[in-house]
Simulated assay, not measured.
Amino acid sequence: MKAVIQRVLKASVTVDGEVISSIGKGLCVLVGISRDDTEADMEYLARKLLNLGIFEDDNGKRWNLSVRDKNLEILCVSQFTLYHVLKGNKLDFHCAMPAESSEEFYNRFLKLLRTQYKDDFVKDGKFGAYMTVNIENDGPVTVELESPSKKSKEGDGQN
C-alpha cells in the first residue's frame, strides 16, 4: 500500500457538483492499493498514519504530534493511479489491485482506521467515482508512505 499524506487546514471531496465529504484541520490521505497487498500492509499503513509526528505541539516543537495526539480529522481518497508504471509516455496500472477486490480492501482499511481512532473523524470520498479533491495544504507538508512488503520484495529490506 502507498499513501500520499498532506497536512491540511481543510479538505473536501466533490462528486457531481456535490460536496460529499469534508474535514477541517487534519490529514488528507491519497491511498493506493497494489495487487499484492495484504492485511499486514493495511495494518502497517494504518498504524503509521495514526502515529506519524507531523504536527507541532503547544510549545512550538515541530514534527512532534500525530493526528491522534491532536484529535484531528482524516480524509481518505482511494487513488489507484499511485500504482502506475510508465510505458513510454503511457500510464499502465497493472500493479494496482483490480477494482473488484480493491473496493472491499479499501473499505476494510477505512474500518480499521475508524476502529483504531474515532469513527466520525475518518472520512472518505466515493470509491470509483470521478472526484474533485480540494486540499488546502498546511505548510505545505506532504509525506509519502509505503508498506514495507513492497520494499523487501524489491530487495532493500527496509521496514
Rank of each mutant, 00 (worst) to 15 (best):
N64F: 09
V4C: 04
T132C: 05
L145W: 03
T38D: 11
D138Q: 14
R114A: 08
T38K: 15
F55A: 08
G128P: 09
E43V: 10
F109V: 02
V29M: 04
V122A: 07
M131A: 12
I54K: 03
V4A: 03
S149C: 10
A11E: 03
A99S: 15
S152Y: 06
G157R: 15
K150V: 06
S12C: 13
K2F: 02
S147A: 13
L75W: 04
L72Q: 04
E18M: 14
Y117R: 10
F109E: 04
G155K: 09
M131C: 08
T14Q: 07
C95I: 11
V8Y: 02
V77G: 10
H84S: 14
G60F: 09
G157I: 09
I20M: 04
K87F: 03
E136D: 14
K70R: 14
N107L: 07
E100C: 00
A40Q: 10
K153D: 12
D57K: 08
R47A: 11
E39L: 12
G125R: 12
M131N: 05
K2L: 02
L9G: 09
L145M: 09
V15Q: 01
L65Q: 15
L112N: 11
L72P: 03
G155Y: 10
E43K: 13
L27P: 08
L75R: 08
D124F: 03
G88W: 10
V13R: 05
K153G: 09
I135G: 01
K118H: 15
L30G: 04
G125E: 03
S152T: 11
R108W: 02
V8W: 00
K153N: 15
D124G: 01
T38Y: 10
T38P: 13
R35E: 14
T132H: 14
F109W: 10
G24D: 07
Q79Y: 05
L30T: 00
E39W: 03
T115S: 14
I20V: 15
V141T: 14
Y130H: 10
D58W: 07
V15N: 11
K25N: 05
L145V: 01
F93D: 06
L110N: 01
K61D: 06
I33P: 04
I135Y: 07
N137R: 05
P98D: 11
E154T: 09
D41F: 05
V31C: 07
F80A: 04
I54E: 05
F55I: 08
A96V: 00
I20S: 03
Y106M: 07
S21Q: 08
N59A: 12
M131G: 00
L27K: 06
P98M: 12
V77Y: 02
S101T: 13
G125Q: 09
D41E: 06
Q158H: 04
M131S: 03
K123H: 13
A3L: 12
A46D: 01
Y117H: 11
V19E: 12
L49I: 09
D69R: 04
K151D: 02
L65A: 10
K70M: 13
K90L: 09
I23H: 03
Y83Q: 12
I54T: 05
V4D: 05
G24E: 08
G125V: 00
V141W: 13
S101C: 07
S149P: 04
C95H: 11
K48V: 04
L86S: 14
G157T: 07
V4F: 07
N137H: 01
